[in-house]
Design a protein around this nucleic acid. Structure first.
Lengths: 349, 349
DNA sequence: GTGAAAGCGCTAACAG
DNA sequence: CTGTTAGCGCTTTCAC
């Protein structure tokens, strides 16, 4: 048993407990707890012995026990309707990064459209294993919000209207207005809009803000909003491609520019135009919102909404609340910047 | 206080405990526990009273306490290198769905490339709050695998080589071979390949399997593998677009078909071809792998690798292991099917 | 079928 | 600065 590469002969069965570390370091469990958590005063000598012992034993605290005793779990829930769509997975990436950095675990709750909306809200979220929650683009109704809040934990929203909860987002209307004005300043007067699915208003309330900005800019410039040029797609490349292709099919009556509420749809619009033999931006200008990586190859002009950063900030806010250093529970606007590429240009003569 | 819409006047402060339910139902906490968990025998009368009381109190078990006492947490970890790339987010969606369905919580551990590889493996995964783990496309080295396994919990791999752990995946080489043969049977002899980044072999070992299948098919058909036509991209649309554009720029020496290891890259290749005035499939045929939604609008022929289903199956396997009903810890191959669209056609004369 | 009681492993007063 | 001592809320033998 001496030739064995592994350490001791008693390290097999049960994982070491706090008591084991205490015994080995010759102190009490209370001291071990303090030394390891950094809370409370411990002599540097004792601390060293404890750390040494803990290391030798390969000790790691049991989170269940720790959580039960302390009431805190270093675990934060992230609730979202989708996980396989660009905006959501990008926000998730940001949330995940910030949480890992802060030493928190991340519990993922995915509605999957509406499939588990009810289940997640009632069964999962309330098991009191969360210190806080981040809700991504979830326009919950008042009852549902109450439900979410009834856990008594801090909740921060991202990218969607969530009344009663501090929210991180871009200024949807402002972004819509600026995108439209960009086209107007290029001389376009026949400007169409590609917006999000209205049949899923619970999730895509954001698209209505962008549309509002578009209409506002058009009105301000004295330009008509042509209903036939207001397309509704499901935020996907393919759906936008198809709809825009239909829109552009009639040479006699089509816009010279399109403001798309998302880059994926914007890219689809560009492909549709090309497939009809139109040039971009010669015959049609397109601007999107997102800074989706796909836009690069299409030369898509866009407004970066910093999705990842939205997630990072949400975690920042949540941690502030947990630390008790939070200020007013105000909403926070993430700045959005233009990324001008080659899909927008002067209106054709 | 009677006009208050809410129930009792004592429901404010602390959440109800098992003891509260027991008191109200007139039984012991042991009976409540049995009745609510369904384990052990309880008279139907007692069960009814308990459920009634629990419902009235709005009782929900504390998972921390439950986990500490039972050693099980109904919480499963998912470890992956990215969360904002198609394959990973799609697998995650499948895992998430299956887990929610089974009543398990999902703890997300995201390496973010290599950024938190170490941290996740050492700090997070070992806190013993997981019943099992699913590792997605993580070619860990033996030491890391040991680390992952040292928690003593079942681990199932998805889509990547993970020696010592049962893995769910497609047959990479077979898929690469079939895709290539599809092109060969269409009469193509000048066939290029668009593969994954070799500089990230830890994650994209899968691409080497597809490449191997390609080379195998080419050899079997007596066709040469032209090194200049073997492109390496980073799995992104934009990078593929750029590289393929460069490849196709020389009319004198270019392939008539490309087998792309992913749909995103395949779509990028199609756009590149079009931007050079080439027609697809007239001048160039392209086939990808994935069934990525983006492929539809491009008419991209592909092989569906059922990414979501891979995630679902992984959960199935994990639950089997947890239930003790698992068979041999064998690897499992997910069938992959052709989805023929318009990007592949007869080789030009 | 049901209750009593002993923990699960850790934290947090409270003394000292 | 450190040890003692209660629990945290639930599960689970072990008797009855």
């Amino acid at each position: 048993m001496a030739a064995d590469g592994r350490a001791h002969d008693d390290d097999a069965v049960n994982p070491p407990r706090l008591q084991d570390v205490a015994d080995r370091a010759g102190v009490s469990t209370a001291t071990v707890s303090r030394a390891l958590s950094g809370k409370g005063h411990v002599s540097s000598r004792a601390r060293a012995r404890v750390q040494q012992a803990a290391h030798e034993l390969g000790f790691v605290v049991s989170y269940h026990a720790s959580s039960l005793a302390s009431g805190r779990s270093r675990n934060i829930g992230v609730v979202l309707p989708y996980v396989d769509r660009w905006y959501f997975s990008t926000v998730l990436e940001g949330v995940s990064a910030a949480l890992t950095e802060a030493g928190y675990d991340l519990a993922l709750y995915n509605f999957q459209g509406d499939r588990y909306r009810e289940t997640v809200l009632t069964d999962f979220l309330l098991r009191k294993r969360l210190d806080a929650a981040v809700a991504v683009a979830l326009p919950l109704d008042p009852a549902e919000t109450d439900q979410l809040l009834s856990g008594g934990i801090p909740v921060v929203g991202v990218g969607g209207p969530l009344t009663g909860v501090p929210t991180i987002s871009i200024d949807e209307a402002d972004v819509g207005r600026r995108a439209t004005e960009h086209l107007i300043h290029l001389g376009h007067r026949r400007i169409g809009h590609l917006g999000g699915e209205e049949e899923q208003p619970r999730y895509f309330a954001m698209s209505s803000g962008r549309r509002a900005g578009y209409e506002q800019a058009m009105a301000q410039a004295g330009l008509p909003v042509e209903p036939a040029w207001s397309l509704i797609a499901d935020y996907s490349f393919t759906d936008a491609y198809q709809r825009v292709k239909n829109l552009l099919a009639d040479p006699a009556d089509r816009p010279t520019a399109i403001f798309s509420a998302s880059d994926e749809m914007g890219a689809g619009a560009i492909l549709a135009a090309r497939d009809l033999g139109l040039t971009v931006p010669g015959d049609l200008s397109v601007i999107g919102i997102d800074a989706h990586p796909l836009g690069e190859a299409f030369g898509l002009t866009t407004i970066d909404q910093q999705a990842r950063q939205q997630g990072v900030r949400a975690v920042g806010r949540v941690l502030e609340q947990l630390a008790g250093t939070a200020g007013e529970p105000t909403d926070e606007i993430i700045p959005a910047h233009f990324v001008v590429r080659s899909s927008t240009g002067p209106a054709p003569a």
